[in-house]
Amino acid sequence: MALFAKPKTPGIAPVQSQSGELGCPAFASLVETLEREPEHKYHILDLAAASGNHIEFFSRFRCRYHIGDVLHVLPDLSPPEEDEPALDFGRILPLNMPDRLDLILAWDGLNYLDKALLPQFSQHLVRQCNPGAWLHAFIYTRGEMAAQPVQFEVLSSNAMRRQAATGSTVGAPCYPQRVLEKLMPGFRTAQSRLLKNGLQECLFQVQE
């Protein structure tokens, strides 16, 4: 039978499953780091909509947990034309909290923001961060991704489950690590792991 099997169309990357469990070793090491200072009060920004699961997981820490609820907006943002003013991320994601952030949970949101807007978004975040603050993200490295950011559920410090709202997909930007770092001024890569499912788990840190 294999002799008669149709060869895969060249140039089209396989469609990855947009749902299912995944390991997250960088997240696990981050949690371990946070747990080393149980008395420290962390300020955490979750870019996703409010999730009981996320809140429950981070309730183990002394923390203030800010809900950004901005992920669903990111795919619709486009860079301004030449004669238009720059996008005001302060209105899209107001960060006027009195305390600076120690951790940003970006989940897969960075994949959905226009490449030209990533540096500005990154700078907006860095301005509200403490030196050494963390940003945790998943980057698609091949093929396609869900048309909208998927929902992540934290199962444990080293396992998550992602669930796409619909089955529709779009091409993933597939940023190489170096390119992504250039697109995120103020952040440096602290850890980067290629997961089995083709996702790159990245832990960035605000440069001190």
Partner: peptide
């Protein structure tokens, strides 16, 4: 509050201080 429960479908915008103190 030291304990915050968000049921599925709940809508919340803001911040949560989960510091028991």
């Amino acid at each position: 509050s030291p304990k915050v429960i968000l049921e599925e479908g709940a809508t919340f915008k803001g911040s949560i201080d989960m510091d028991a103190k």
